[in-house]
């Protein structure tokens, strides 16, 4: 207390927080890229089940004959997995640090809290998304979970699943979480990567994050609802 000369403190544990933020941002942007790519594939079903199956097949044969079958897919999967690990680890580290930075909470409650909602959307919402991704892989990739029997064609799997209302419900809910996550995630990534340099630029970033979130949510929800309401059979 006596002087403001730096007291001896325990050294910081772990990487600098801005580095952690950057890991979250970079892996997050990779997910955005992936999600857009994924959405493009899903929309093939509007062209027809054949187009969708062809797209799914191409994912496996991408790069052939230079590369062996499924190699691109596996490289991509490994990258995704590494990104998930990095994204979750860095976010959880920051979450833990935030908890340690305020061990006594406020008794007074704020009337309007912008940050509280988004913070929850990022942290709890992020965990919900992770749970959803696990479900999604078990459902469509490994087919451990089957809704309406096994189907050889990917398009048939999709169409038969989304004909069930509660499956559409689960996916729709997940997309709302994804939308909220992107709404703040794209903004945050731009902030962390140093792109917000003026008030005008902040507006532009806000616009892009709203646009991306909207495109992704709408783009992903068109196929299931189209199936549910019988436009695709």
């Amino acid at each position: 207390m006596a002087t403001s000369t730096a007291p001896a403190r325990a050294a910081r544990k772990g990487p600098p927080s801005i580095l952690l933020k950057t890991v979250v941002a970079v892996t997050g942007l990779f997910f955005v890229f992936f999600v857009l790519f994924h959405m493009y594939g899903n929309l093939q079903i509007l062209v027809g089940p054949e187009a969708f199956d062809e797209y799914a097949h191409h994912l496996r044969t991408f790069g052939e004959p230079m590369l062996p079958e499924k190699s691109f897919l596996w490289v991509f999967r490994i990258l995704l997995l590494a990104s998930v690990v990095g994204h979750v680890w860095a976010s959880m580290s920051l979450w833990r640090r935030a908890g340690q930075a305020r061990t006594t909470r406020y008794a007074g409650k704020k009337k309007t809290s912008y940050g509280g909602f988004y913070a929850k959307a990022m942290r709890w919402g992020g965990l919900a998304l992770l749970a959803f991704v696990v479900f999604h892989i078990l459902h469509f990739t490994t087919q451990t979970i089957t809704i309406d029997g096994a189907h050889a064609s990917p398009a048939e799997r999709v169409i038969s699943s989304f004909a069930v209302w509660w499956v559409v419900g689960i996916y729709a809910l997940a997309m709302v979480f994804l939308g909220m996550h992107l709404l703040h995630g794209v903004w945050g990534a731009a902030m962390t990567l140093g792109l917000n340099t003026s008030l005008q630029r902040a507006e532009q970033i806000r616009f892009v994050s709203i646009l991306l979130a909207t495109i992704v949510v709408v783009g992903f929800l068109i196929p299931p609802f189209a199936i549910l309401f019988g436009f695709i059979e």
């Binding site: 945050g188 902030m191 917000n196």
Partner: peptide, 26 residues
């Protein structure tokens, strides 16, 4: 703690320092 870009700080700042200074820092 680390910043999560929520902007509560700039809303509370009596001088209205904008959030972009954090982006500049990054």
């Amino acid at each position: 703690g680390g910043c999560t870009n929520l902007g509560e700080c700039t809303r509370a700042c009596p001088k209205g320092i904008p959030l972009n200074v954090i982006s500049q820092l990054n």
